[in-house]
Amino acid sequence: MTKKCQIAPMTKRIALFASHGVQALDITGPSSVFTSANRIVTGTAPYSVELVSPSGGLLETLSGVSLDSASIGDTPPEAIDTILVMGHDTRGIEALVAEDRAQKWVTQAVGGARRWGSVCLGAFVLASWGLLVNRTAATHWAAAEDMAKRFPDTSIDPESIFVVDDELWTSAGVTAGIDMSLAMVEADLGTEVATRIARHLVVYLRRPGSQSQFSGVLKAQFANASPYRDLIEWAEKNLNDDLSVGALAMRVGQSTRTFQRHFTAQIGRTPAAFVEDLRLERARAYLASDLALHAVAREIGYPNTNRLNVAFQRRFGVSPSVWRTMHG
């Protein structure tokens, strides 16, 4: 039996707004977070989650699964506590942006909501309707540059997995919507509830919004066609070696200044930041084992556990010891 937390908040109405061509996980991820809170908290359910669309009925998602939705005509916008616009494919975004009724309804909901925003490419819809002027927002990394060009009055954060700008909450691609929803639940119901939901869903708790959308491994894979491919593969296998910028530059036969500039242009991260990505990615793998912290630090190239603690806390928002307790 699941032990429930002794909290009895008023039910908050969560509207997940979408149309045809929506990314299914953009919906099911946040929905799973909010409905999990209902199973954990005693008393009145903290959330009522609804999928809302311009016309109601079944929505065709990108995954091939159809999801039933309520019509905006049957959902009073003034009753909504939190509204999130979901990500869609290009055709879905264009069709949704052209929906005058949808724009009017979402704008009314945003005007009265305590909290509003988007998941993934839903930010394109909000920006197209003029709702992100002079705001800072996140979106999927692959669309960040295009969105920044199309909407110069919006500050696009291409790195963060989610961004909070007062009552505006926007997340990066797909699974980042889960991280943002966990942060919302923590703000509403506290850390204990958010922790238990994260453990139940087997996800990282409170992955900081400022954390990069790319992991070190993904960056390395992304760089397979770059002239630094061999260097990256060597660095991954020799994390406890000298991976200073000067040493890496010498290894590829470039001056430190030239290497710093070219590597950053190719990979999208400075050499030092990239090396830290690789080391901390490996640290998480070691922490899932029973390897002592001082041994983890030594294996990934940190001189002591204090250096590991500082870097890990800065990146993931928790200490290595806490992370091991939660996920080991």
Score class of each variant (00 low, 15 high):
residue 116 W to Q: 00
residue 144 A to N: 12
residue 174 V to H: 02
residue 216 G to Y: 04
residue 187 A to W: 01
residue 153 D to F: 02
residue 112 G to D: 02
residue 231 L to A: 10
residue 178 I to Q: 06
residue 113 A to Q: 06
residue 163 V to G: 00
residue 104 K to W: 05
residue 141 W to G: 01
residue 145 E to F: 05
residue 210 S to M: 12
residue 108 Q to I: 06
residue 113 A to N: 06
residue 117 G to Y: 02
residue 128 S to V: 03
residue 230 D to L: 10
residue 159 E to Q: 04
residue 241 D to R: 12
residue 243 L to N: 13
residue 133 V to K: 14
residue 215 S to K: 04
residue 173 G to V: 12
residue 175 T to G: 01
residue 137 A to H: 06
residue 162 F to H: 01
residue 189 L to I: 11
residue 111 G to M: 11
residue 234 W to F: 05
residue 177 G to S: 07
residue 176 A to V: 06
residue 112 G to I: 06
residue 136 T to G: 03
residue 246 G to M: 02
residue 213 Q to M: 09
residue 147 M to R: 08
residue 144 A to H: 02
residue 131 L to P: 10
residue 248 L to S: 12
residue 200 H to G: 04
residue 148 A to P: 00
residue 190 G to I: 13
residue 177 G to D: 13
residue 241 D to Y: 09
residue 167 E to A: 15
residue 139 T to E: 07
residue 192 E to W: 00
residue 225 A to M: 00
residue 145 E to Y: 03
residue 191 T to Q: 14
residue 222 F to A: 15
residue 154 T to R: 09
residue 239 L to I: 15
residue 133 V to D: 09
residue 162 F to R: 00
residue 185 V to L: 00
residue 122 G to W: 00
residue 137 A to S: 15
residue 175 T to P: 10
residue 149 K to W: 07
residue 146 D to I: 00
residue 221 Q to M: 07
residue 116 W to Y: 15
residue 134 N to T: 02
residue 237 K to N: 14
residue 242 D to F: 03
residue 107 T to L: 04
residue 134 N to S: 15
residue 183 A to L: 08
residue 225 A to N: 09
residue 207 R to W: 09
residue 111 G to D: 08
residue 141 W to T: 00
residue 240 N to M: 11
residue 138 A to E: 11
